[in-house]
Computed example of a mutant assay.
Amino acid sequence: MHICGFFDSREQQYEVIIPYIMEGLNANDKVINILESSRHGEHCRCLADNGISIAEKLSSGQLEVLASENTYINGGKFAADKMYDMLENTLLSASRGGYESVRACGDMVWALKNLPGTDELLDYEAKLNLLTPKHSCSLICMYDVSSFSESTLKDVLLTHPYVIKDGKISKNELYVEPSALLSSLSDLQSGSLDS
């Protein structure tokens, strides 16, 4: 599953992702969180406050907390193909490591920095829908609705078969199949990402 999570506060975000992470850890899934390194301490405290034994899960490798700076925007730029390959390799590695499934959530705030390659965001999001059917995984792309423009959020919706809004997950009626979207992506009036 490839899910777009729309949140209007950090509290609302954690109300959704804490149960998602805990359920994954309890089911022996590999759990990956990607967010800016400046938030790692706060994030791990929040997980610990909800009963997750952070040190144990991190040391076993079942839980990974990665930095946006080392993943999405490694080297100060976004490269959709590199990020796609990194994610696919992570999914393959998790499978070889004995995990039946992977749960990942990534905070998309990095896309607001307008770094080189950010214009490949929709291409990347669309291509993830070619990746997810090949692996047992669920991916939540977390968007702060108060930070991104309405046009960007509308475009992002096109690339996710499921959406979380107001804390509830539902099938996204606006979703466009990746082959159709990728072939017409250059014609989309996506506007520019906010800074």
Rank of each mutant, 00 (worst) to 15 (best):
M1F: 10
M1N: 13
G5R: 11
F7D: 09
D8S: 14
S9M: 04
R10A: 12
Q12I: 04
Y14L: 12
I18S: 08
I21G: 03
I21R: 08
I21Y: 14
M22A: 08
G24Y: 10
L25I: 15
N26Q: 07
A27S: 08
A27L: 12
A27W: 02
N28Y: 06
N28G: 02
I34W: 15
E36Y: 08
S37H: 13
S37C: 06
G41Y: 07
E42Y: 06
H43E: 10
R45T: 12
C46P: 00
N50L: 06
E56K: 14
K57L: 03
L58N: 02
L66V: 04
A67W: 09
N70D: 11
N70P: 02
G76N: 05
G76I: 01
K77V: 01
F78E: 02
D81G: 04
K82G: 13
K82A: 14
M83Q: 11
Y84G: 02
Y84A: 01
E88Y: 03
E88W: 04
E88N: 05
N89W: 11
T90P: 00
L91S: 06
L91P: 10
L92G: 11
R96A: 08
R96Q: 12
G97P: 00
E100M: 01
E100P: 00
R103F: 09
R103W: 13
G106F: 09
M108C: 10
A111T: 13
A111H: 09
A111P: 04
P116R: 04
P116H: 06
D123F: 11
Y124I: 12
Y124D: 03
E125D: 13
K127F: 00
N129S: 10
N129E: 13
K134G: 01
S136H: 13
S136V: 10
S136K: 15
S136M: 12
S138R: 13
L139Q: 10
M142Q: 14
D144C: 03
V145H: 02
S147V: 01
S147P: 02
F148P: 03
S149C: 02
S149W: 06
T152S: 10
L153E: 01
V156W: 07
L158C: 05
T159R: 10
T159P: 05
H160L: 14
P161M: 15
I164K: 12
K171M: 14
E173T: 05
L174T: 04
L181Q: 11
L182W: 04
L182E: 08
L182F: 02
L182Y: 05
S183D: 07
S183N: 11
S184M: 11
S184H: 14
L185F: 11
D187Q: 14
L188M: 14
Q189L: 06
S190R: 14
S192Y: 03
S192F: 07
L193M: 09
S195M: 03
